[in-house]
Protein backbone atom coordinates (compact mmCIF):
# COMPACT_ATOMS: atom_id res chain seq x y z
CA UNK A 1 0.00 0.00 0.00
CA UNK A 2 1.06 3.58 -0.60
CA UNK A 3 1.36 5.90 2.36
CA UNK A 4 1.65 9.66 2.57
CA UNK A 5 1.37 12.26 5.24
CA UNK A 6 -0.92 15.20 4.96
CA UNK A 7 -0.95 18.30 7.16
CA UNK A 8 -4.35 18.85 8.77
CA UNK A 9 -5.06 22.12 6.93
CA UNK A 10 -4.34 20.29 3.68
CA UNK A 11 -6.83 17.59 4.61
CA UNK A 12 -9.36 20.34 5.21
CA UNK A 13 -8.54 21.66 1.75
CA UNK A 14 -9.15 18.20 0.31
CA UNK A 15 -12.58 17.94 1.95
CA UNK A 16 -13.47 21.42 0.74
CA UNK A 17 -12.44 20.41 -2.75
CA UNK A 18 -14.74 17.39 -2.54
CA UNK A 19 -17.53 19.53 -1.12
CA UNK A 20 -17.33 21.81 -4.13
CA UNK A 21 -18.53 19.09 -6.47
CA UNK A 22 -19.93 16.20 -4.45
CA UNK A 23 -22.25 15.42 -1.57
CA UNK A 24 -20.26 14.79 1.60
CA UNK A 25 -21.39 12.68 4.56
CA UNK A 26 -19.58 12.96 7.85
CA UNK A 27 -19.94 12.35 11.58
CA UNK A 28 -21.95 15.27 12.92
CA UNK A 29 -22.75 16.01 16.52
CA UNK A 30 -26.53 16.09 16.89
CA UNK A 31 -27.03 16.31 20.63
CA UNK A 32 -26.27 15.01 24.07
CA UNK A 33 -27.72 11.94 25.73
CA UNK A 34 -29.14 11.78 29.27
CA UNK A 35 -25.68 10.89 30.62
CA UNK A 36 -24.16 13.97 29.06
CA UNK A 37 -22.34 12.11 26.29
CA UNK A 38 -22.35 13.53 22.78
CA UNK A 39 -24.51 11.83 20.13
CA UNK A 40 -23.12 11.64 16.61
CA UNK A 41 -24.80 10.67 13.34
CA UNK A 42 -23.39 10.29 9.83
CA UNK A 43 -25.17 13.10 8.02
CA UNK A 44 -24.71 15.25 4.95
CA UNK A 45 -22.53 18.27 5.74
CA UNK A 46 -22.10 21.59 3.99
CA UNK A 47 -18.76 22.62 5.38
CA UNK A 48 -15.68 20.96 6.81
CA UNK A 49 -16.36 22.44 10.24
CA UNK A 50 -19.58 20.47 10.60
CA UNK A 51 -17.57 17.25 10.62
CA UNK A 52 -16.43 16.13 14.05
CA UNK A 53 -13.65 13.63 13.33
CA UNK A 54 -12.97 13.26 17.02
CA UNK A 55 -16.20 11.33 17.62
CA UNK A 56 -16.30 8.18 19.70
CA UNK A 57 -18.98 6.32 17.83
CA UNK A 58 -22.24 7.02 16.01
CA UNK A 59 -25.67 5.91 17.13
CA UNK A 60 -26.41 4.55 13.66
CA UNK A 61 -24.03 2.93 11.22
CA UNK A 62 -23.43 4.50 7.82
CA UNK A 63 -25.03 1.59 6.01
CA UNK A 64 -28.07 3.54 4.88
CA UNK A 65 -25.80 5.32 2.38
CA UNK A 66 -25.00 1.96 0.78
CA UNK A 67 -28.07 -0.02 1.72
CA UNK A 68 -30.86 2.50 2.27
CA UNK A 69 -33.48 1.79 4.90
CA UNK A 70 -35.98 2.33 2.13
CA UNK A 71 -35.11 1.97 -1.51
CA UNK A 72 -37.20 2.02 -4.62
CA UNK A 73 -36.35 -1.14 -6.57
CA UNK A 74 -38.45 -0.23 -9.57
CA UNK A 75 -41.42 1.82 -10.64
CA UNK A 76 -44.42 0.86 -12.71
CA UNK A 77 -46.44 2.92 -15.13
CA UNK A 78 -49.92 1.62 -15.74
CA UNK A 79 -51.90 2.30 -18.85
CA UNK A 80 -55.11 0.57 -19.87
CA UNK A 81 -54.53 -3.09 -19.03
CA UNK A 82 -50.79 -2.92 -19.42
CA UNK A 83 -47.77 -1.72 -17.50
CA UNK A 84 -44.10 -0.84 -17.99
CA UNK A 85 -41.31 -1.36 -15.50
CA UNK A 86 -38.62 1.26 -14.89
CA UNK A 87 -35.42 0.70 -12.92
CA UNK A 88 -32.91 3.36 -11.91
CA UNK A 89 -29.61 2.94 -10.14
CA UNK A 90 -27.71 5.63 -8.29
CA UNK A 91 -25.08 7.29 -10.42
CA UNK A 92 -24.24 10.42 -8.39
CA UNK A 93 -20.89 10.25 -6.61
CA UNK A 94 -20.77 10.84 -2.86
CA UNK A 95 -18.04 10.93 -0.24
CA UNK A 96 -18.14 9.63 3.32
CA UNK A 97 -15.49 11.13 5.54
CA UNK A 98 -14.45 9.64 8.85
CA UNK A 99 -15.59 6.01 8.92
CA UNK A 100 -13.97 3.93 11.63
CA UNK A 101 -12.26 0.63 10.82
CA UNK A 102 -15.23 -1.44 12.03
CA UNK A 103 -17.53 0.32 9.59
CA UNK A 104 -15.09 -0.24 6.74
CA UNK A 105 -15.00 -3.92 7.65
CA UNK A 106 -18.78 -3.84 7.61
CA UNK A 107 -18.62 -2.64 4.01
CA UNK A 108 -16.16 -5.41 3.14
CA UNK A 109 -18.58 -7.95 4.61
CA UNK A 110 -21.51 -6.43 2.75
CA UNK A 111 -19.41 -6.54 -0.44
CA UNK A 112 -19.07 -10.28 0.06
CA UNK A 113 -22.75 -10.87 0.71
CA UNK A 114 -24.17 -8.45 -1.84
CA UNK A 115 -21.66 -7.77 -4.58
CA UNK A 116 -20.01 -11.13 -5.30
CA UNK A 117 -20.57 -14.79 -6.15
CA UNK A 118 -24.27 -14.96 -6.85
CA UNK A 119 -26.86 -12.40 -7.87
CA UNK A 120 -24.66 -9.36 -7.24
CA UNK A 121 -26.92 -6.44 -6.37
CA UNK A 122 -26.66 -3.60 -8.90
CA UNK A 123 -28.30 -1.31 -6.35
CA UNK A 124 -25.60 -1.93 -3.75
CA UNK A 125 -22.74 -1.94 -6.25
CA UNK A 126 -23.90 1.39 -7.68
CA UNK A 127 -23.87 3.02 -4.28
CA UNK A 128 -20.66 1.39 -3.18
CA UNK A 129 -18.74 2.34 -6.32
CA UNK A 130 -20.09 5.85 -6.28
CA UNK A 131 -18.97 6.42 -2.72
CA UNK A 132 -15.52 7.75 -1.89
CA UNK A 133 -14.62 6.38 1.54
CA UNK A 134 -12.22 8.10 3.89
CA UNK A 135 -11.57 6.17 7.09
CA UNK A 136 -9.93 7.28 10.30
CA UNK A 137 -8.24 5.56 13.24
CA UNK A 138 -9.57 6.22 16.71
CA UNK A 139 -9.12 5.23 20.31
CA UNK A 140 -11.39 2.34 21.34
CA UNK A 141 -15.00 3.25 21.96
CA UNK A 142 -16.69 2.17 25.16
CA UNK A 143 -18.04 -1.35 24.90
CA UNK A 144 -16.69 -1.93 21.41
CA UNK A 145 -15.14 -5.37 20.92
CA UNK A 146 -13.85 -4.98 17.38
CA UNK A 147 -10.40 -6.16 18.36
CA UNK A 148 -11.83 -9.58 19.22
CA UNK A 149 -13.21 -9.78 15.72
CA UNK A 150 -10.13 -8.47 13.94
CA UNK A 151 -11.93 -5.40 12.69
CA UNK A 152 -9.99 -2.77 14.64
CA UNK A 153 -7.73 -1.96 11.72
CA UNK A 154 -8.49 -1.80 8.01
CA UNK A 155 -6.13 -2.53 5.15
CA UNK A 156 -8.62 -2.29 2.28
CA UNK A 157 -12.19 -1.36 1.54
CA UNK A 158 -11.48 2.40 1.60
CA UNK A 159 -10.04 5.05 -0.68
CA UNK A 160 -8.06 6.84 2.01
CA UNK A 161 -7.49 5.96 5.65
CA UNK A 162 -6.19 8.48 8.15
CA UNK A 163 -4.29 8.11 11.38
CA UNK A 164 -4.01 11.23 13.50
CA UNK A 165 -0.38 12.03 14.27
CA UNK A 166 -1.07 15.38 15.91
CA UNK A 167 -0.31 18.10 13.37
CA UNK A 168 -0.59 15.77 10.41
CA UNK A 169 -2.39 12.67 9.21
CA UNK A 170 -0.69 9.45 8.24
CA UNK A 171 -2.61 8.52 5.10
CA UNK A 172 -3.01 5.01 3.68
CA UNK A 173 -4.06 5.14 0.03
CA UNK A 174 -6.42 2.31 -0.83
CA UNK A 175 -7.35 3.08 -4.41
CA UNK A 176 -6.39 4.86 -7.56
CA UNK A 177 -9.29 7.20 -6.88
CA UNK A 178 -7.79 7.99 -3.48
CA UNK A 179 -4.41 8.61 -5.05
CA UNK A 180 -5.87 11.00 -7.61
CA UNK A 181 -7.80 12.88 -4.95
CA UNK A 182 -4.49 13.79 -3.30
CA UNK A 183 -2.93 15.10 -6.49
CA UNK A 184 -2.09 18.79 -6.28
CA UNK A 185 -2.03 18.66 -2.48
CA UNK A 186 1.25 18.77 -0.57
CA UNK A 187 1.05 15.13 0.47
CA UNK A 188 4.53 14.02 1.49
CA UNK A 189 6.28 10.70 1.12
CA UNK A 190 6.52 9.12 4.54
CA UNK A 191 9.70 9.37 6.57
CA UNK A 192 11.10 7.05 9.19
CA UNK A 193 9.82 9.48 11.79
CA UNK A 194 6.29 9.22 10.34
CA UNK A 195 6.39 5.42 10.53
CA UNK A 196 7.65 5.55 14.08
CA UNK A 197 4.94 7.99 15.11
CA UNK A 198 2.31 5.93 13.32
CA UNK A 199 3.33 2.71 15.07
CA UNK A 200 3.31 4.48 18.42
CA UNK A 201 -0.27 5.65 17.85
CA UNK A 202 -1.32 2.17 16.74
CA UNK A 203 0.20 0.73 19.89
CA UNK A 204 -1.63 3.24 22.06
CA UNK A 205 -4.92 2.37 20.37
CA UNK A 206 -4.31 -1.37 20.67
CA UNK A 207 -3.59 -1.01 24.37
CA UNK A 208 -6.84 0.84 24.93
CA UNK A 209 -9.22 -2.04 24.32
CA UNK A 210 -11.06 -3.09 27.45
CA UNK A 211 -13.75 -5.36 26.08
CA UNK A 212 -12.75 -8.72 24.75
CA UNK A 213 -14.65 -11.88 23.92
CA UNK A 214 -13.64 -15.19 22.45
CA UNK A 215 -15.49 -15.81 19.21
CA UNK A 216 -13.49 -18.82 18.02
CA UNK A 217 -15.83 -21.45 19.41
CA UNK A 218 -19.07 -19.65 18.56
CA UNK A 219 -20.13 -21.44 15.36
CA UNK A 220 -19.94 -24.79 17.09
CA UNK A 221 -21.27 -23.51 20.38
CA UNK A 222 -24.35 -21.99 18.77
CA UNK A 223 -25.18 -25.36 17.28
CA UNK A 224 -24.73 -27.22 20.55
CA UNK A 225 -26.52 -24.63 22.68
CA UNK A 226 -29.52 -24.45 20.37
CA UNK A 227 -31.89 -25.25 23.24
CA UNK A 228 -29.93 -23.28 25.86
CA UNK A 229 -31.85 -21.47 28.65
CA UNK A 230 -29.68 -18.45 27.78
CA UNK A 231 -32.06 -17.74 24.90
CA UNK A 232 -35.00 -17.81 27.27
CA UNK A 233 -33.27 -15.34 29.56
CA UNK A 234 -32.30 -12.79 26.92
CA UNK A 235 -35.16 -13.51 24.53
CA UNK A 236 -37.67 -12.83 27.29
CA UNK A 237 -36.36 -9.28 27.49
CA UNK A 238 -36.42 -8.68 23.73
CA UNK A 239 -38.91 -6.01 22.63
CA UNK A 240 -38.94 -7.41 19.08
CA UNK A 241 -38.51 -3.85 17.84
CA UNK A 242 -35.75 -4.42 15.30
CA UNK A 243 -33.60 -1.53 16.56
CA UNK A 244 -30.49 -3.74 16.79
CA UNK A 245 -30.70 -4.69 13.13
CA UNK A 246 -31.37 -1.10 12.08
CA UNK A 247 -28.26 0.31 13.76
CA UNK A 248 -26.11 -2.71 12.80
CA UNK A 249 -23.61 -1.91 10.05
CA UNK A 250 -23.95 -5.35 8.46
CA UNK A 251 -27.58 -6.42 8.91
CA UNK A 252 -28.98 -6.51 5.40
CA UNK A 253 -32.25 -8.47 5.72
CA UNK A 254 -35.20 -6.84 4.05
CA UNK A 255 -38.82 -7.04 3.05
CA UNK A 256 -40.48 -5.88 -0.14
CA UNK A 257 -43.77 -4.06 -0.44
CA UNK A 258 -45.54 -2.40 -3.31
CA UNK A 259 -47.96 0.42 -3.67
CA UNK A 260 -50.02 2.11 -6.32
CA UNK A 261 -50.81 5.79 -6.62
CA UNK A 262 -54.37 6.80 -5.82
CA UNK A 263 -55.07 7.50 -9.50
CA UNK A 264 -53.82 4.01 -10.43
CA UNK A 265 -51.37 5.50 -12.94
CA UNK A 266 -48.13 4.47 -11.29
CA UNK A 267 -46.75 2.12 -8.70
CA UNK A 268 -43.52 1.30 -6.93
CA UNK A 269 -41.78 -1.71 -5.51
CA UNK A 270 -39.98 -0.73 -2.34
CA UNK A 271 -37.42 -2.55 -0.32
CA UNK A 272 -37.37 -1.82 3.42
CA UNK A 273 -34.63 -3.10 5.68
CA UNK A 274 -36.19 -5.51 8.12
CA UNK A 275 -35.09 -7.40 11.20
CA UNK A 276 -35.18 -11.07 12.08
CA UNK A 277 -36.40 -10.02 15.53
CA UNK A 278 -39.69 -8.73 14.16
CA UNK A 279 -42.59 -11.09 14.70
CA UNK A 280 -43.57 -11.69 11.09
CA UNK A 281 -40.05 -12.23 9.76
CA UNK A 282 -40.58 -15.94 9.09
CA UNK A 283 -44.31 -16.01 8.39
CA UNK A 284 -45.22 -17.97 5.25
CA UNK A 285 -48.26 -17.97 2.98
CA UNK A 286 -51.32 -19.07 4.89
CA UNK A 287 -50.03 -17.51 8.10
CA UNK A 288 -47.77 -20.17 9.65
CA UNK A 289 -44.94 -18.55 11.63
CA UNK A 290 -41.72 -20.55 11.77
CA UNK A 291 -40.36 -18.33 14.55
CA UNK A 292 -43.25 -17.24 16.73
CA UNK A 293 -41.19 -16.72 19.93
CA UNK A 294 -38.93 -13.84 20.88
CA UNK A 295 -36.17 -16.13 22.08
CA UNK A 296 -36.18 -18.09 18.81
CA UNK A 297 -35.88 -14.90 16.84
CA UNK A 298 -33.13 -13.48 19.02
CA UNK A 299 -31.24 -16.76 18.80
CA UNK A 300 -31.59 -16.66 15.06
CA UNK A 301 -29.97 -13.23 14.95
CA UNK A 302 -26.90 -14.56 16.75
CA UNK A 303 -27.02 -17.61 14.53
CA UNK A 304 -26.75 -15.51 11.41
CA UNK A 305 -24.07 -13.24 12.90
CA UNK A 306 -21.74 -15.92 14.16
CA UNK A 307 -22.59 -19.14 12.36
CA UNK A 308 -24.50 -18.61 9.13
CA UNK A 309 -22.24 -15.89 7.79
CA UNK A 310 -19.24 -17.84 9.02
CA UNK A 311 -20.29 -20.88 7.00
CA UNK A 312 -20.65 -18.81 3.87
CA UNK A 313 -17.68 -16.46 4.13
CA UNK A 314 -15.37 -17.88 6.81
CA UNK A 315 -15.83 -14.89 9.06
CA UNK A 316 -18.53 -13.66 11.42
CA UNK A 317 -20.93 -11.01 10.20
CA UNK A 318 -20.47 -9.03 13.42
CA UNK A 319 -17.79 -6.30 13.46
CA UNK A 320 -17.91 -5.70 17.21
CA UNK A 321 -19.11 -2.09 17.10
CA UNK A 322 -21.66 -2.81 19.87
CA UNK A 323 -24.18 -0.38 18.38
CA UNK A 324 -26.86 -3.04 18.93
CA UNK A 325 -25.89 -3.32 22.58
CA UNK A 326 -26.00 0.46 23.03
CA UNK A 327 -29.33 0.97 21.29
CA UNK A 328 -31.18 -1.90 22.99
CA UNK A 329 -33.52 -0.48 25.61
CA UNK A 330 -33.81 -3.90 27.19
CA UNK A 331 -30.06 -4.04 27.66
CA UNK A 332 -29.43 -7.06 25.47
CA UNK A 333 -25.81 -6.76 24.46
CA UNK A 334 -23.75 -9.21 22.44
CA UNK A 335 -20.82 -9.43 24.85
CA UNK A 336 -23.01 -10.57 27.75
CA UNK A 337 -25.12 -12.91 25.62
CA UNK A 338 -22.03 -14.59 24.18
CA UNK A 339 -20.35 -14.85 27.58
CA UNK A 340 -23.54 -16.39 28.99
CA UNK A 341 -23.54 -18.97 26.23
CA UNK A 342 -19.94 -19.79 26.89
CA UNK A 343 -20.56 -20.04 30.63
CA UNK A 344 -23.48 -22.35 29.93
CA UNK A 345 -21.18 -24.54 27.89
CA UNK A 346 -18.70 -24.82 30.74
CA UNK A 347 -21.22 -25.88 33.38
Amino acid sequence: MLFRTLAKPDFKALVERILASTEVIGPKRVGTDRHGRPIHHYLPVESFDEIDLDYETTEFSAKTYFLPYKENLCSYRFQDDDWRQEIRYRIQPRAIIGLHACDIHALIKLDKALARDFFPSPYYISRRKNTFVVGIDHDPCEGGFCRSLGTDTATHGFDLFLTDLGERYFVAIGSDRGFRALSGLPAAEITEQDTEDYLRVRKRIAAGFKTEINVQNLPNLLDIEFESPVWEKWGGKCLSCGSCAMVCPTCYCYGVSERVSMDFASGAKTKQLYSCNLIDFAVVAGGHNFRPNRQTRLKYRYYHQHRGFMEAYDEPKCVGCNRCGRTCLAGINPVEVIRDLQAEDET
Binding site: A113, L114, F118, F119, S121, Y252, C253, Y254, G255, V256, Y274, C276, F281, A282, F290, Y300, Y303, H304, R307, G308, F309, E311, A312
Partner: peptide, 12 residues
Protein backbone atom coordinates in the same frame (compact mmCIF):
# COMPACT_ATOMS: atom_id res chain seq x y z
CA UNK B 1 -31.50 -14.58 -4.55
CA UNK B 2 -30.02 -15.16 -1.10
CA UNK B 3 -30.22 -11.49 -0.14
CA UNK B 4 -33.31 -10.76 1.94
CA UNK B 5 -32.70 -13.59 4.47
CA UNK B 6 -36.44 -14.13 4.95
CA UNK B 7 -36.25 -17.80 3.94
CA UNK B 8 -33.30 -18.75 6.14
CA UNK B 9 -33.60 -22.02 7.97
CA UNK B 10 -30.91 -21.92 10.63
CA UNK B 11 -28.09 -20.63 8.48
CA UNK B 12 -29.30 -22.09 5.19
Amino acid sequence: MGKCCRCNVGST
